[in-house]
């Protein structure tokens, strides 16, 4: 585990918000030389701390992705000797339909978020792939009807667009 100082934490925060800031921008903002920012980012990439830089889309505004469907699946597991949940989890999360996969506390064990092109694709994933894995005891599937907030960003709601342009 890498321990971060205050400025490094701020860099992480800024990059999570906006990956397009240059090392010059970031350095000026937090008060570090840009060369230092550059070498930090490079070492984070090398150490697998930064996995990749992606773009967050508002999918609801994109016709091409309108036909994807997401579901949350609760999965109960009978843990295996020695490997517990981990070996089963590795098998499940390799599947391309699986977007997110968590071990959680409470009434069931795994929470899996899956994506598919149709209800059929997801239900086939559940019945043919997931439920057939040994030691998967039961599953419960919840299809997502509407997204209100994702990755900390409320979708399609507030922006300060109504500020008056020039004020005292």
């Amino acid at each position: 585990m890498t321990k971060l100082n205050k400025k490094e934490k701020e860099l992480v925060h800024l990059l999570k918000e906006n990956a397009r800031l240059s090392s010059e921008d970031l350095g000026q903002m937090v008060g570090l030389p840009s060369s230092k920012v550059q070498s930090l980012i490079q070492s984070w990439q090398k150490d697998g701390i930064i996995l990749k830089h992606t773009t967050l889309f508002n999918e609801e505004k994109l016709e091409s992705t309108h036909d994807t469907i997401r579901a949350l699946i609760e999965v109960s597991i009978r843990p295996e000797k020695k490997t517990g949940f981990d070996a089963i989890a590795r098998r499940i999360c390799k599947h391309p339909n699986v977007i997110d996969h968590y071990l959680i506390s409470g009434n069931y064990d795994f929470l899996i978020i899956v994506e598919g092109k149709s209800l059929q694709e997801i239900s086939s994933f559940v019945s043919n792939t997931l439920a057939s894995i040994e030691n998967v005891r039961s599953t419960g599937t919840h299809f997502i009807l509407k997204k209100y907030k994702e990755n900390g960003i409320a979708l399609g709601t507030e922006e300060m667009e109504n500020r008056i342009l020039v004020s005292a």
């Binding site: 507030e158 300060m160 342009l165 020039v166 004020s167």
Partner: peptide, 22 residues
């Protein structure tokens, strides 16, 4: 000055006097 800015298009305003957080 506000009236002038309000009637222009594609303007980035650095003339505001309030936070950009709700």
């Amino acid at each position: 000055f506000f009236d002038l800015v309000a009637s222009s298009k594609d303007v980035i305003s650095l003339g505001v006097g309030e936070p950009d957080f709700p």
